[in-house]
């Protein structure tokens, strides 16, 4: 428990990080530092995206596997580390923005 909190604290302490959302495989939010509605939105939309990305990767090469997803937008950078059971989503504003 404390390790999770510690990790989240460390992540959010970085100067560009806006928030952290941890989601399970089904897109259900486990822990987040964003406000509830936005976090829920991130949870459902990003897990959907990860599922699609994962499927695409496997379709391209059955031996392959999605390991990291980095979405650069005009305003943010969304980094998603997908593992078997859970997703960690970190939203940060890039240096230049």
């Amino acid at each position: 428990m404390s390790e999770l909190e510690e990790t989240i604290r460390r992540l959010t302490a970085k100067k560009n990080v806006q928030g952290v959302v941890i989601v399970n495989q089904l897109g259900l939010m486990i822990r987040s530092t964003l406000d509830a509605a936005l976090a829920k939105q991130y949870a459902s939309l990003m897990s959907e995206l990860v599922r699609m990305a994962r499927d695409s990767v496997v379709q391209l090469d059955a031996q392959n596997e999605l390991t990291f997803l980095r979405i650069r937008t005009k305003k943010h950078e969304i980094m998603i580390c997908p593992e078997r059971e859970y997703l960690m989503i970190v939203v940060q504003t890039p240096e230049s923005a």
Binding site: E3, L4, T7, R10, L11, K14, N16, V17, I22, F68, R70, M79, C81, E83, E85, Y86, M88, V90, Q92
Partner: peptide
């Protein structure tokens, strides 16, 4: 384990 690993990866990426 997940938190440990994924946060490490994300921090490196950041």
């Amino acid at each position: 384990d997940f938190v440990e690993h994924s946060s490490k990866v994300i921090e490196r990426a950041m």
